[in-house]
């Protein structure tokens, strides 16, 4: 797991964090890799043994005074726009909801005991980690109970990521398995279940 993990691109560094999630900042040109619902991991700065696993639920690009001025400028040159994007003062923020952690190679589907520290590097999970983490689907409930995120869309995107991390022959079975877990978790809310299943339906 570790070998391939090292090769995964670093998408940013932790800006602020709590045990339920964190925000990492990055340059604007670095946001080609992360996508909504992707699995990310961050290595705990001090303890070293705990990797926090999370799902990207929002990518936001905040404005700054220069952008405001450029927007109002009459004739913005492409060079100015490029300069603003590459050298902007405010980082692109990638919001992550924590869904588990890895300690001594054992996967826990629970909130991490401590949040990552600021400036801890954040990288996308490799397929092997995603497969290992999604062998059990206990994180689904954690996501469903998260406030302030579009849970159905986030879960659907995450499950499709997890499905695509697998060999093609296993993808359908994985989605069916996940769908069954969702059917149990959303038994009280059939419309929400139907919507979610529609989002992950491979047919």
């Amino acid at each position: 797991m570790t070998d391939t993990t090292a090769q995964q691109p670093i998408i940013g560094s932790v800006l602020r964090a709590s045990t339920v999630g964190f925000v990492c900042g990055t340059r604007s040109q670095d946001i080609v890799h992360p996508s909504f619902g992707a699995f990310v991991r961050t290595r705990h700065g001090q303890m070293g043994e705990i990797d926090v696993i999370g799902l990207i639920h929002a990518i936001s690009i905040d404005d700054d005074p220069l952008v405001r001025q450029l927007v109002l400028a009459n004739n913005m040159t492409p060079a100015a726009a490029r300069d603003q994007r590459e050298n902007r003062m405010v980082p692109v923020e990638i919001s992550v909801v924590n869904i588990g952690f890895i300690q001594y190679d054992y996967i826990y589907h629970n909130l991490p005991p401590r949040p990552p520290l600021s400036l801890d590097p954040v990288q996308l999970c490799d397929d092997e980690t995603i497969m290992a983490f999604t062998e059990r689907l206990d994180f689904l409930r954690l996501v469903l109970n998260t406030n302030d995120v579009p849970t159905e869309e986030l879960l659907a995107a995450a499950l499709l990521h997890a499905s695509n991390a697998r060999p093609e022959a296993q993808r359908y079975a994985f989605l069916v398995h996940a769908g069954r877990r969702l059917a149990g978790l959303l038994a009280h809310d059939p419309p929400r279940l139907q919507h979610l299943l529609r989002l992950i339906n491979p047919n």
């Binding site: 069916v176 769908g179 069954r180 969702l182 059917a183 149990g184 038994a187 299943l197 339906n201 047919n203």
Partner: peptide
């Protein structure tokens, strides 16, 4: 009152035995 469309095999496999 709003049964799922079980002509879809994916939905059928999920709903049967769970919901």
């Amino acid at each position: 009152s709003d049964p799922p469309d079980l002509t879809d095999q994916f939905l059928r496999e999920i709903y049967s035995g769970t919901a």
